[in-house]
Design a protein around this nucleic acid. Structure first.
Lengths: 252, 252
DNA sequence: GTCTATAACATGATAGAC
DNA sequence: GTCTATCATGTTATAGAC
């Protein structure tokens, strides 16, 4: 449906100083609507989901024209990718840089588990404090659950991060084989994704207490939780032998 | 948009023995297409998402007529709710029943943490072994990340489960206050949801090793991981004092 | 760069014959 | 209970005036 190979460029020469239609301030206006589209789409995608958010709603809320999306980004998908990259690239760059700093600081030993996890989760959770970031983190939380149609390109960015973190974590977790480590990292990523996805429910529609929690506090808790979980010894005996071995009736 | 209040009923008297149009075997045919619709929709919703799956694709794949969905279920949303309830109600019933058995067995003490977690996660993971269940678990994984439009009614079913499990877990975790416990339970639910959502990628498109893991094995690992995470002492000092306090540049 | 108008098509839902 | 035909509305995307 879409190949993501060549990024969209508005006109033939938008990077030059020539104003495209000889109107003064046209280029500033263009940059303004472009940013308004990114911000508004980010909010609406987070609130209603990608499929349920039409370009009409986005452009209306951003006080822009329907055609502006296609001019600036090329398509709905490219708009999504653009707003996603805008936030996630600085985060992933921070993660990798800080990880390398950790490795250098503790060489030749591997860095402590808690520190590695901290570097993995804190930059993402910190997004919640940036303007508009509270919407974006919900999108990230959905990224891992959504089926693989329109965001495979984005998942690859996370794959790069994971490939750098996995060996460092493995060095501190020698009691886990490859499969166990991968599984427990799925748990850890799921914990992060879920807390990101629920971040907006600050006053809890469910039985959760009202969250006055700061991102820093959440990061502290998540690091403690994940480190303990990763270190947990491999389980031997399934403790609750099911009294009734299979008490599910056939589907109606 | 939709109120979920009164469920759909195909005709005035479909529960009676009267065949609706005097055709022999009509009622059996009706039940067959109804089931085919449920199974097919479950698979397609899991593979492409709710919004991206049209009724036309469902009915075509199920060898049924487009109007059959509206006859049997009333609407697309009601079809979704029906296929969801079909699977999740037995699971949640099992969870609550087994929990009560645990409580009775260990009274007056609270049951062991690992046993409670086992009862919470294993019935859901076991769905993967039922025919068609491998599609359904992906839907569950998405339920927690998806925004709150068309599945609030379903989330309430999980709220009931959580309200029964929370106090039992709290009894074994006296070092956590309400907020910490709620947060760590979000981590735990996220771990479960993520592993459910990724359950179909058995041979891993990413750097994960090929999973030959059975649901029982996953449940063992998850219980060990979550129990250790929940028991982890509250963290005191953020260990990695960020060298550069905030090295994020403003958004482009 | 912006905007109007419209193409080209997909969607969920429904009425009514069989 | 199944089917065809259709309604009303929505969607992304594009062409062309300004």
């Amino acid at each position: 449906m879409h190949d993501f190979s060549e990024p969209h460029t508005p006109t033939e020469a938008p990077a030059t100083g020539l104003d495209p239609s000889a109107q003064p301030g046209a280029v500033e206006r263009g940059a303004a609507t472009r940013q308004a589209l990114l911000d508004t789409a980010e909010r609406l995608f987070a609130e209603h989901g990608y499929g349920a958010t039409s370009l009409r709603r986005i452009t209306a809320a951003a006080d822009a024209n329907l055609a502006a999306v296609h001019y600036h980004f090329g398509s709905k998908q490219d708009l999504f990718v653009a707003l996603f990259r805008r936030r996630v690239e600085p985060v992933n760059r921070q993660r990798v840089e800080r990880l390398e700093r950790l490795i250098a600081a503790s060489a030749p030993q591997a860095p402590p588990l808690e520190d590695v996890l901290d570097v993995l989760v804190r930059p993402m959770l910190a997004l919640r404090d940036e303007p508009g970031g509270e919407h974006f983190v919900r999108l990230v939380g959905r990224l891992f659950a959504e089926p693989g149609d329109h965001l495979t390109a984005l998942r690859e960015e996370f794959d790069e991060v994971r490939s750098k973190f996995l060996p460092v974590l493995a060095a501190q977790l020698p009691h886990l084989d490859r499969e166990q480590l991968a599984l427990r990292m799925q748990f850890t990523i799921g914990s992060l994704a879920n807390v990101l996805a629920q971040a907006h429910r600050s006053n809890g529609p469910t039985c959760f207490p009202p969250f006055t929690t700061t991102p820093e506090r959440v990061a502290d808790e998540l690091v403690a939780y994940a480190a303990a979980g990763l270190r947990a010894p491999v389980r031997r005996t399934p403790p609750d032998a099911p009294a009734a071995p299979n008490d599910t009736e056939p589907l109606q």
